[in-house]
Design a protein around this nucleic acid. Structure first.
Lengths: 151, 151
DNA sequence: ATAAATGCAAAGGATTTGCCGTCAA
DNA sequence: TTGACGGCAAATCCTTTGCATTTAT
């Protein structure tokens, strides 16, 4: 994911950001973050648990899950899939896109011709065959804005 | 989601497509599909179970879940979130997009300036505040193409 | 008649919770 | 010292599975 130098830089930043946020720089927390930085494959929390256990065999699921949440809140990492708690179904097959609320996970249809035209200039890497583009616009729905979406 | 006429048309189509696919036109199957057509909110399977139970109180989870899978395979409905089995994490905060394999759910980073420029021409509906755009390109990775991705 | 579909209940996997002991600051 | 953190185990939620019964064709 990162060059060795960039990796070092981020790990140093990490200590600062923990200090700034008033978070203890525990060994577990540090290893979990390093594993995430080194992972090129968008791992699941379970995969992170497995990788961390190679270095800290006794680490618990709870610790890994809690730290992942902390990192997301700090903005240190992101979830690729905002909507992963459950499947979400759509019987509307017309060309359209989705607004996804980062707070409450509401999904709203979004018809927009500019977005319909989104198309890559580069060929897809690794021989990946693209079938369709789907734009997700992430943000806050009006309810969550008024509720104070300072997440 | 659809006008009354469009709804009727789709329900008629539905019977034809079931017949064509050799699927029995059961009452349960029909009601599940109608609920999906009428739902404007991208419901979860659990939400579909709840709505169907207003009409068929005795319907089982298994029936709803199995039919949803059948409908997705037939292409009658789509999943908004291809990646919903588990969270997927990304420590790479650089601007980039994702290729998602419809078959094996692998996620590959995709850097492309054209996609970076994706932006709506229309204002977002319902006062939704867009924070960032994220393009997902859905298709088949090279491994799944060779394996015969005739899903 | 017969293959497919439903319903039930139990199992499975991911994630969260509460509580207690431990550690970083 | 002390509040935050880690570990454990149980609980929860979503989804799948196996099997016996019913139903559509």
């Amino acid at each position: 994911m990162f060059s060795p130098q960039a990796l070092q830089a981020r790990l140093t930043d990490f200590r600062c950001r923990c200090a700034a946020a008033g978070l203890a720089a525990t060994h577990q927390r540090f290893v979990i973050y390093r594993i995430l930085l080194e992972s090129k494959d968008h791992p699941s929390p379970e995969a992170v648990v497995a990788r961390v256990r190679e270095q800290i065999p006794s680490i618990s699921h709870a610790t890994v899950y809690k730290n992942i949440h902390t990192f997301v809140e700090m903005g240190l990492i992101r979830e690729v899939n905002l909507l992963h708690q459950t499947s979400r179904l759509d019987a509307n097959l017309d060309r359209h896109h989705h607004l996804v609320c980062e707070q409450c996970r509401k999904v709203v249809d979004f018809y927009d011709e500019s977005l319909d035209r989104a198309q890559a200039a580069e060929p897809a890497p690794h021989g990946f065959a693209i079938r369709r583009y789907q734009v997700e616009a992430h943000g806050l729905c009006s309810e969550c804005q008024s509720a104070g979406g300072e997440s």
